[in-house]
């Protein structure tokens, strides 16, 4: 743990009426690291990152971004802190051009609020090239793109704003095989450029190739955390199934589980 933390979330609790979505979750992301956030449907993955992006406010707990402590965030603040959200329900305006979508909500303007169009086009083109989309015309309306490229446009926002952390919330759901590969490539390219990502999926075969570390959520709790180097995809699948059935990690993997040691001595640590 010699790398710095980009984000640390401590003892996050979130309730929706009588439903408790998150029951005291501790979660962190280090510099230049891809965290695979996995778990079954309804485990609280999306809720957790929506809190991190400021769409929901947590009922308890705190969020520390780059050393600054927050009770809650909002999307604008999250953007300013260098966090970008790539959502499965695309945050894109499909009738509008690629460059407008790349800068959506964070347009470059002069002091009077007028758009610096040619500058934005240039930067959008450069950022898409960094992801390997060199032939893409930034004047093309987004509706002409296929799903994988649409995710590419969203991911390129991270490069435009020089963000440090990209949250990918089920970015590969509803994509074909080839397009999924494409999105995974983009994630690798982000890592090459020193960015961190949180990759959420319930399909471990999408997460496994790109993630450095897996955090497994189950019914609002973090039940396990592993380094990729300790596991094969098959191991991870076995663990996931075991957690889904029994709620616990199989005995033979327990010694690899980081959650047994992580946070020792921290008062905010919940009983897992």
């Amino acid at each position: 743990m010699n790398r710095g933390y980009i984000v640390e979330m401590r003892n996050i609790v979130k309730r929706f009426g009588s439903v408790v979505a998150l029951r005291g979750v501790d979660f962190y992301v280090q510099e230049n690291e891809v965290v695979g956030l996995v778990g079954d449907n309804g485990a609280g993955k999306s809720t957790l990152v929506k809190i991190l992006f400021g769409i929901y406010a947590p009922d308890e707990g705190e969020i520390i971004v780059k050393g600054i402590k927050f009770r809650k965030l909002n999307p604008k603040l999250a953007y300013e802190l260098g966090i970008v959200l790539v959502h499965q329900e695309r945050i894109l305006c499909e009738n509008h051009t690629i460059w407008r979508n790349v800068f959506m909500g964070r347009e470059l303007t002069n002091r009077l609020g007028f758009l610096k169009i040619s500058e934005m086009k240039k930067i959008a083109y450069e950022c898409l090239s960094q992801l390997g989309l060199t032939r893409m015309q930034v004047d093309t309306p987004v509706k002409y793109l296929s799903g994988g490229y649409m995710q590419g446009v969203q991911i390129s926002r991270a490069l435009t704003f020089d963000a440090d952390l990209v949250i990918l919330d089920e970015p590969t759901t509803a994509l074909s095989l080839v397009e999924t590969q494409r999105v995974l490539e983009y994630v690798n390219k982000l890592k090459d450029r020193g960015k961190s990502s949180i990759f959420i999926s319930h399909n471990i075969y999408h997460v496994y190739p790109v993630a450095d570390r897996f955090v497994i959520l189950d019914r609002g709790r973090v039940v396990a955390e592993f380094y990729k180097k300790d596991l094969t995809p098959e191991d991870l699948a076995e663990i996931m199934i075991s957690i889904a059935r029994t709620g616990s990690v199989p005995e033979k993997y327990q010694k690899l589980n980081l959650r047994l040691t992580y946070g020792k001595g921290s008062s905010s640590r919940s009983t897992l």
Partner: peptide, 9 residues
């Protein structure tokens, strides 16, 4: 995309 607009702040 109203929800998207909200999500980008």
């Amino acid at each position: 995309n109203r929800i998207g607009a909200q999500m980008v702040g």
